[in-house]
Amino acid sequence: MDAVIDNLPTFLEGFRNTLGLLALAGIGAFILGIVIAAMRISPVGSFRAFATIYTEIVRNTPLTLVLFFCAYLLPYLQFSPGYFQLAAIGLTVYTSPFVAEALRSGVNGVHVGQAEAARSIGLTFGQTLSFIVMPQAIRMVVPPLINVFIALAKNTSVAGAFFVFELFGAARQITNERGDAVIAILLAVAVFYLIITIPLGVIAGRIEKKVAVLR
């Protein structure tokens, strides 16, 4: 236990970097995901095809490989803004198709009858979208989206293997120094991760329940 307390500043620094990665990659993936999702439901065929291929390829590539590319090969191409930024780029790219899929499934999940009803009482395209479809779609999108961000929070740990000092990196460093208290140290790191993931999961569950009642 003393190993944990002694190294608390190191843990907190790692935790801060984990949160930083989560925020940076989360925002990036959200924006990129919106673009991809918009391309996937757009009437323009070529955009749709591009977005589909992008989604399939990125979704079937291991995150480790993506981050390997960012950490080893991008600097080789003389693009090296620092490992933290590189890891954030990798996580953004890796997470964006999942965001896009969550968004798309939300919009597709709104029943066709809703839009038909709105059209038949004479609402215009804009009114249909903003008063009928979007309010329902956003509600349905939020829980899966939160789940994507939970996964992202866990995925930031992979960045720790590629020269970023976040929680997992902190765990590796501290366990190297204090080989006698490995269990306590790793459990402490696990608790830090759970601090992020469990509340997010509870929020997602709450919203899911609310939506289920409404539908």
Binding site: L63, T95, F98, E101, A102, S105, P143, P144, I146, N147, V148, I150, A151, L152, K154, N155, T197, G201, A204, G205, R206, I207, E208, K209, A212, R215
Partner: peptide, 30 residues
């Protein structure tokens, strides 16, 4: 009930989030 997977075949990832409720899709993403 609402937790059941849709009877129409779909992308496994979509079924996944519907079937497992809130906290589950997390795994499908890692």
């Amino acid at each position: 009930g609402s937790t059941a997977p849709p009877s129409k075949p779909a992308d496994p990832n979509l079924i996944y989030s519907n079937a497992l409720g809130a906290q589950s899709t997390a795994g499908g993403v890692v």
